[in-house]
Amino acid sequence: MLHTVNKSPFEKNSLETCLRLIEDNSTLLLIEDAVYGALKNTNIEEKILNAQTNIKLYVLGPDLKARGLDKNSLITNIEIIDYKGFVKLVAENEKIQNWL
C-alpha cells in the first residue's frame, strides 16, 4: 500500500498519524509541504528514522526543489523521485491512502 502525506509535520499531525497507523513494508511518499518532514536535525527526525526500519520512504523532487531543498538537507536513505517515479509508485500499489 502507498501512503502519501502533503502537510508540514510542524503544522499538522498528518505525518505523525500516518507513521502511527502505517503497516510494515508499506511505502510512504512525502509531497508538497510534507517534504519538510524529510529534513535532518528536526524534532521529528527520530520518528522518521524509526519508521525507516519498517517502511520505504520517498520524497517528491519537484516539491523539494521548489522549497530550496535538496538531497543534502535530507535524512539519509530517503529516495528522491520525480513525477514519473510518483506515477510508477501509484501503478505499483493497488491501494493508496492520502493523509491530508
Binding site: M1, L21, I22, E23, K95, I96, Q97, N98, W99, L100
Partner: peptide, 13 residues
Amino acid sequence: MKKLITDSEVIFN
C-alpha cells in the same frame, strides 16, 4: 486501526 485501513479497498479522506 492499522489493520482496518489495510483491509479496506476504497479509502476516502
